[in-house]
Design a protein around this nucleic acid. Structure first.
Lengths: 215, 215
DNA sequence: CCGGAATGTTCATGCGGTAAACATCGGGCA
DNA sequence: TGCCCGATGTTTACCGCATGAACATTCCGG
C-alpha cells in the first residue's frame, strides 16, 4: 500500500514514478536543463542518492522525461487535428489535417516550451559509434513524426494525379515546424507579437502544404 | 608588448581575447554546454576568477562565443553561395543562390555541430519582461538570416509576375533549414547515412524554393 | 521467524560558478 | 624620479550538483 496517512515510511512505495512526475514538472517549468536529480529528490522528499536505485543517473531520468514529453506533444497534435472540422472534399480535409497537426505541434511548443525542449533534448554527448540507420522513420516512439508523415501521405493520395509527394517530404515538413518552433521559442523569433507570430506560422504552413508536392 | 618569450608575466596582456578563443574552441569541440569558464581559464593558463575581470560571468562569455559562431555561419553561407556557378537566366541564378545559401547553412551545421549549436544557444532563462518586438528581421547581427531573406527577395523580383513571395517567407525558409539542421544534428534524424541525408536536404530545399512562392 | 534483496540514508569526492580579499604590475602625475 | 592608484590576476571560500561507497531499514519468500 502506498503511504496514505501523513506518516512517512522509510520506503516511499512508488519512488520511481514520483521522481518522474517531479522531473516532468521541472522540465515543464524550465526545460531539460532544469531537470536536476537533487531537486527532483527534494520535491519528493527523499535523499538525492535514492534516485540511483531507480535510474542510472540524471541522464536516464532525463531520457524518461523526454519520452513523456514526446507523448504529450503527439497528444496535443491529435487533439488539434480532432478539433478540426471535416470537409466534404477529401483533398481539402487532408490538407486541413496536415495544417491542424502542424498547428498543434507549434502550439504545443509555444504553450509548453519546457516540455517541448525536453522532448528533443539530445542524449549528449552523442555516442559516435552508433551505426548509421537508414530508415526514413527515425524512431517508432516518435508518434509526432508518424502522425505528420501519415497525414502527408493521405494528402498525396487524395491529390489529383499530377500531384505526388516527394520521398522525404515528411522529414522536410517536420523540419519546417520544428525549426519554426525553436526559432519562436528560444531563437531569434522569440519576442514576436502574437500577431506576427501567427503570420509566420501561416506562411510556414503554406510552404509545407504547397511545397511538399511535386508539380 | 605581448609576452613573446616563454616567460610568464603576471599580466597576460590579452586575456579577454585568449579566453574568447579558448571558449570558441570549447564550443567547437562540444557545443555551448562545454563552454566552461574554468576550463577556458585553464587552457589559457590563468586562474578561474581572472575571467571575471573581462566577463560578467559564464553567461557573457557564452554570448560572445555565440556572436562569433553566428558570424562563422554567415561566412560559410556566403562561401557556399560564392562557389555556385552563375546562370544566364537571372531567375535560375536567384534560385540557385537561395539553394546554395541553404546548403551552406545546413553544411555548416553538419560540419561544425558545436559551433552551430552555440550560434543559437538561448540566453537562458529568457527574461520574460523584454518587450515584444515586431520587426520581421529579428536581429541585425544575424547576417545568416539577412542573407537568406535578401536572396528570397531577389528570387521574387526575378519571377514571372504571377509569382510573389509571401510576407514572412524569410522566416519560413529559415525555419526549414534551421529545423532540418537540428534534426540532423542532435534530433531524431542524426544517424542518417550521408545518402539519405542528402535526399532529405534536397527535398527540404525544394520545399523552400517552390513553397515560398504564392501561385 | 529469519535472512537476503530492495530501497533509502549518510558520507565523501570532484567539478563548476562566483564572490571577497589580497597581490602585482604599469603608467601617469607631483 | 619616484610614488600611488587602478587594472589585472591570485587565493580562498562557499554553494549546488552528479555520483559512488558504506551503512540502515523494510519487506517478503522459504
Amino acid at each position: 500500500m502506498a503511504a496514505i496517512s501523513g506518516g512517512k515510511t522509510y520506503h516511499h512505495g512508488d519512488l520511481r514514478n514520483a521522481l518522474i512526475c517531479a522531473a516532468v514538472d521541472l522540465a515543464t517549468e524550465g526545460g531539460p536543463e532544469r531537470v536536476v536529480l537533487r531537486e527532483a529528490a527534494r520535491r519528493v522528499g527523499v535523499s538525492p542518492t535514492a534516485a540511483y536505485r531507480h535510474f542510472d543517473g540524471r541522464g536516464e531520468l532525463l531520457r524518461t522525461v523526454r519520452t513523456h514529453a514526446q507523448r504529450l506533444l503527439a497528444d496535443a497534435m491529435e487533439r488539434a487535428a480532432a478539433r478540426e472540422p471535416g470537409a466534404d472534399d477529401p483533398a481539402l480535409a487532408a490538407e486541413r489535417r496536415v495544417a491542424a497537426l502542424c498547428r498543434g505541434y507549434v502550439g504545443f511548443a509555444v504553450d509548453q516550451p519546457g516540455l517541448y525542449r525536453a522532448a528533443f533534448c539530445a542524449p549528449r554527448p552523442a555516442a559516435p559509434d552508433e551505426p548509421a540507420q537508414d530508415r526514413q522513420t527515425p524512431d517508432p516512439e516518435l508518434r509526432a513524426f508518424t502522425l505528420l508523415r501519415e497525414a502527408l501521405e493521405a494528402l498525396a493520395r487524395t491529390g489529383t494525379p499530377r500531384f505526388g509527394v516527394r520521398p522525404a517530404s515528411g522529414a522536410a515538413a517536420w523540419s519546417a515546424v520544428h525549426g519554426l518552433s525553436l526559432l519562436l521559442l528560444e531563437g531569434p523569433l522569440r519576442r514576436l507579437s502574437a500577431q506576427r507570430r501567427n503570420a509566420v506560422v501561416d506562411t510556414t504552413l503554406a510552404m509545407v502544404v504547397s511545397g511538399t508536392r511535386t508539380h
